[in-house]
Simulated scan of single mutants.
Amino acid sequence: MESQIVDLTRALVGIPSHDDETDAGTHVEDWLRRETDAAVTRDDAGNVIARRGAHGNAETLALVGHHDVVEPAPTQLVDGADPKRGAAYAIEERDGRLYGRGTADMKGALAAAMLAFREADPAGELVFASFVGEEVGGIGARHALENGFGPDVAVVGEGSTGYSSPAVTDVAVAHKGRRGSTIVARGSAAHASEVDAGENAIYRATDAISLIRDLEVPSVDVAGETIDGSLVVTEIDGGTAMNVVPDRCEMTVDERTVPGTRAPIERVESVEGLEWIVDQDLPPMRCDDDAFAATVLEAADGTQSGTPELVTKPHATDAGWLSQSGTECVICGPAEPGQAHTPDESVSIEVLERCSETYRRVAERWPR
Rank of each mutant, 00 (worst) to 15 (best):
90 A>V: 09
229 G>Q: 04
340 A>G: 08
302 G>F: 03
171 V>G: 03
274 L>S: 07
165 S>T: 14
81 A>E: 08
95 D>E: 15
256 R>K: 06
45 A>C: 10
13 V>D: 03
362 V>N: 01
214 D>E: 07
337 P>L: 05
307 T>Y: 13
101 R>A: 05
33 R>W: 11
187 G>D: 12
324 Q>I: 04
279 D>I: 12
332 C>Q: 03
65 G>W: 02
201 A>N: 14
220 V>T: 05
252 T>D: 11
341 H>Q: 14
14 G>H: 04
175 H>I: 06
313 K>P: 02
292 F>T: 03
15 I>R: 01
27 H>D: 12
162 G>P: 02
365 R>Y: 05
302 G>L: 01
269 E>A: 14
171 V>C: 05
172 A>S: 09
230 S>N: 15
364 E>M: 01
197 A>Y: 06
149 F>N: 00
217 V>P: 00
221 D>Y: 13
15 I>E: 02
227 I>N: 01
306 G>I: 12
345 E>N: 10
61 L>Q: 02
249 C>I: 10
249 C>S: 07
212 I>M: 04
120 A>Q: 00
56 G>R: 10
124 G>E: 06
128 F>S: 01
269 E>C: 13
339 Q>C: 06
66 H>N: 15
262 R>C: 09
108 G>P: 13
173 V>Y: 03
30 D>K: 03
90 A>P: 03
164 S>M: 06
247 D>L: 05
129 A>N: 05
52 R>I: 13
296 V>W: 01
23 D>N: 10
218 P>M: 07
336 E>P: 03
292 F>S: 04
295 T>D: 06
210 S>Q: 13
368 R>L: 08
289 D>E: 05
226 T>G: 12
16 P>E: 14
307 T>S: 08
34 R>P: 15
197 A>E: 15
79 D>W: 03
32 L>V: 08
260 G>A: 09
17 S>N: 12
49 I>T: 15
155 V>N: 00
331 I>W: 04
344 D>P: 08
203 Y>H: 12
230 S>F: 06
55 H>I: 06
65 G>K: 02
32 L>G: 02
194 E>N: 13
82 D>S: 15
105 D>T: 06
272 E>N: 09
224 G>Q: 12
19 D>L: 12
196 D>T: 15
64 V>L: 13
27 H>K: 08
298 E>S: 15
356 S>F: 00
175 H>A: 09
232 V>D: 14
183 I>L: 10
